[in-house]
Computed example of a mutant assay.
Amino acid sequence: MKRRRFIEKSSGLLAAIAAAPILTQANMNNHSSKNMSTGKQETITHYVLFWLKKGLSEKEVSDFTGFFEELRKVPNIKSLHYGRAANSTPRDVVDNSFTYNLLVYFDTLEDLEVYGTHPIHLKAIEQYSQFWEKVVVHDSVLK
């Protein structure tokens, strides 16, 4: 009887393990949309670099993350990630001079446009723009 329960429990675990790649792929597809004209999967990315003003306290620099948390409230964002520059090995092609970066994924270019003019986004910019001296934006269509 104990062996039968072990086999029953094990077969459920094996089914879950077998389904994991399918579930992972389904989750990845949530970050992409189908371009109706080409039939290809695409993801819109909004990548932003922030250089905060010199002379800010470490607390002010840390508190700047409130800006990103406000942006999370804008609808149609698939995912939002932010962080500080990494202390990676210096190379000619590496620019770690920025303070924070922001990476936002959208399903469509229209969703990105809504984000850009959304009142939550505009209010957050108004509230936090006093902290930065430079911002660079890169919007891309990933295939």
Rank of each mutant, 00 (worst) to 15 (best):
M36I: 14
H121S: 00
Q41M: 14
Y82W: 15
D111S: 07
V135R: 02
N101S: 12
V104E: 04
T43A: 15
V48M: 02
A20L: 13
T65C: 11
G116H: 08
R84S: 08
Y100R: 04
F131N: 10
V94D: 06
Y128C: 01
A85Y: 02
K40M: 15
K134W: 06
S88D: 07
R84G: 04
K123N: 10
V137E: 01
M28Y: 09
E42K: 13
Y47W: 13
E113A: 14
S33W: 06
T89P: 02
N29R: 10
T45R: 06
K73S: 09
G12E: 10
L112A: 05
Y105P: 00
T117I: 06
S32Q: 14
Q41D: 12
S97E: 07
L80S: 05
L112P: 01
S97Q: 10
N101A: 10
R5L: 11
T45P: 01
M28C: 14
R72C: 04
W132R: 02
D107M: 07
Q41P: 02
A86Q: 12
D95M: 05
A15R: 08
D92C: 04
A15H: 02
R91Y: 14
I17M: 09
M1E: 14
T38S: 11
M36K: 15
D63S: 08
L71V: 04
I7G: 02
Q41S: 08
T117A: 06
S62H: 11
L56W: 07
P21K: 10
L56E: 04
F64E: 05
A85Q: 04
R4H: 12
L14F: 14
A20V: 11
P21G: 12
V94W: 12
A26Q: 11
Y100V: 01
K123W: 00
G55I: 14
L122Y: 06
T89N: 13
S97C: 12
L112N: 05
L23E: 08
L109K: 05
H46Y: 10
R3T: 12
T108M: 00
Q25R: 14
N87I: 07
G66Y: 04
K2S: 08
K9Q: 11
Q127C: 02
E70D: 09
I17H: 02
W132K: 03
A19N: 05
K123C: 00
H81V: 13
K59D: 08
D111A: 06
